[in-house]
């Protein structure tokens, strides 16, 4: 559909993997707390069971979908627009004309920093849209490119 579009850097899969692990750990903690509440204050035990099931299933599904998430997330910068594409079951195509771009923000949490990646958020006067992860150098290049094009577009 987008002939010259790019995938995100493959290392983003590792980041997604770790964040899946993170949600598994959070799930374990919640389940443990609920179990504790069950022992201490006699909270209903189906809460513990439900929480345990969610803790197990959710990371498996999330991890299983990573290859697809990677395959279906794409972006493209043309001289006139930034385009993004994502979603496997619910597909989304998004276009932001360069002339409408107000600012570009690079943002990286600890995981992304460690992998030398960064999120890129493109904001217009009304909406903002995020590319989940790009190589730091690519992101900076992209920002320069967008701002350059935005400058030119404004001179029209």
């Amino acid at each position: 559909m987008l002939p010259t579009s790019h995938h995100l850097p493959p290392r983003i899969k590792r980041i997604w993997g770790y964040s899946t692990l993170g949600s598994f750990v959070v799930g374990l903690v919640v389940t443990a707390l609920l179990y504790w509440a069950h022992l201490g204050w006699h909270w209903a035990n189906w809460l513990v069971i439900a929480s345990a099931i969610v803790t197990l299933i959710e990371p498996i599904v999330e991890a299983g979908l990573i290859p697809y998430r990677y395959r279906f997330t794409r972006y493209q910068i043309t001289p006139v627009a930034v385009e993004m594409q994502s979603g496997m079951v619910f597909k989304k195509r998004l276009a932001i004309p360069i002339a409408r771009v107000q600012d570009v923000t690079l943002k990286a949490g600890p995981l992304l920093q460690w992998q030398k990646l960064t999120q890129v958020t493109v904001a217009t006067a009304a909406t903002s849209h995020t590319i989940e992860g790009l190589e730091l150098t690519v992101a900076e290049q992209l920002r320069e490119q967008i701002m350059q094009l935005a400058q030119e577009a404004r001179h029209d």
């Binding site: 079951v89 619910f90 989304k92 195509r93 932001i96 409408r100 909406t127």
Partner: peptide, 11 residues
Amino acid sequence: QIQSLEVNFSV
């Protein structure tokens, strides 16, 4: 004046 345009469709 269109800030961005989105197309959505499911499989």
